[in-house]
Design a protein around this nucleic acid. Structure first.
Lengths: 144, 144
DNA sequence: ATCTTTACTACGACAGACATACTACGACAA
DNA sequence: TTGTCGTAGTATGTCTGTCGTAGTAAAGAT
C-alpha cells in the first residue's frame, strides 16, 4: 500500500496533460478546447482522406501540421474515433505494421465521412465570417 | 387540466429554437453550437465595448451583424451574462429606459472583461490558422 | 380580443473535451 | 537491472457551454 506521492512517475503524462504553460512575462496564448470543439473530428477526417491511419500517427500529424500549436489529448482523440465509427464516418481494421510487427487499430474514412467533412468545411467558412465580424484587428476599435 | 397538444402556441418559440431549416434542394449550412461555443462570450463582449446594453438588444445586434446567419438562443445569452458577471467580465445595473419606461437589466464591460476579450481575440487568430491547415479549399485535395 | 414583440427566469439534458489512471512492450542508457 | 522514453492504446468519471422546454409579464400591433 503505497501512498501516492506528487512525483511524476508517468513519462507520458505531458502528452496527456498538454504542454506546460510558460510562466513568464508573456502569457502563452493557447487554443481553448471550446473553439476547437467539434473540429477535432474534422481535422482527423482531413488526415484520413490521405489514407488510413491510426491514433498515435494522427496525433503526431496534428501536432506537426499545426507547428506544435495544437496537441490533441489522447482521450479526445480516441473518443473521437469511437464516436465517428459509431456515426459511420470511419471504419476500423486491425493490422500488423510492417516496421514494428505490432498490431494496431487503423481507421479509414467512409463516403459518409467524406460528406461530413465537406459539410464541416462549408460550415467553417460561414462561421469564420461571422466570428470575424466580432473581432477587432489589434486595437482598431474606437472606444478603447 | 389541459393535455398539451403538439400545436405551436408559443409565438416566441422560433427565437428559442432557432431558424427553421430550409428543406429543399440545397442543404442549409448552419453554424453549429460546437464551433461557436466559447465565442458567444467574445461576441457579447465585443458589443459591450461600444457601451452598456441588455439582453434583447445584444441578441438583435448579433443577428444583424451576422446578417441573420447566427441567432443566439435566449438561454445561451442569459446564461452567458450570468457566467461573465460571476467571472468579473461584466457588471450589471438596473435602469429604466427613456423610450419604453420599463426597467431593464443592463450590462457593462469591466477592465477584466476587456482583457479577456483581447485574449480571446489573440486566441482566435491562432486557432483560425490551425484549423485552416486542415481545411481544403473547395476540392483541391488530391486524393478526392 | 388575440397575436407579437419585448424582456426575462428556471430547470434539466446532452455531448465533447478533459483529468486521472492504468496496461503493455521494445529500445536504450546509467 | 532499473529506469526512462516512445509507442499504442483502454477505462471511468467530471466539467462546462449550449440547448430544449416551459414559464411570467407588460406594451404594442392587427
Amino acid at each position: 500500500m503505497v501512498i501516492r506521492e506528487p512525483v511524476k512517475t508517468d513519462p507520458a503524462a505531458d502528452v496527456r496533460r498538454g504542454p506546460k504553460k510558460k510562466k513568464g512575462v508573456e502569457v502563452m496564448t493557447e487554443i481553448s478546447s471550446d473553439i476547437i470543439r467539434g473540429y477535432n473530428d474534422t481535422m482527423i477526417l482531413f488526415l484520413l482522406i490521405k489514407g488510413p491511419s491510426y491514433g498515435y500517427e494522427i496525433s503526431k500529424q496534428i501536432r506537426n501540421l499545426s507547428d506544435g500549436k495544437y496537441i490533441i489529448k489522447e482521450t479526445t482523440l480516441y473518443s473521437a474515433f469511437t464516436r465517428m465509427e459509431k456515426n459511420g464516418y470511419i471504419e476500423s481494421f486491425s493490422q500488423i505494421s510492417q516496421d514494428t510487427g505490432k498490431r494496431r487499430t487503423y481507421y479509414r474514412i467512409t463516403a459518409q465521412g467524406m460528406e461530413y467533412y465537406r459539410q464541416k468545411r462549408d460550415e467553417w467558412v460561414l462561421t469564420k465570417e461571422v466570428i470575424e465580424k466580432f473581432i477587432t484587428k489589434e486595437n482598431e476599435n474606437g472606444s478603447c
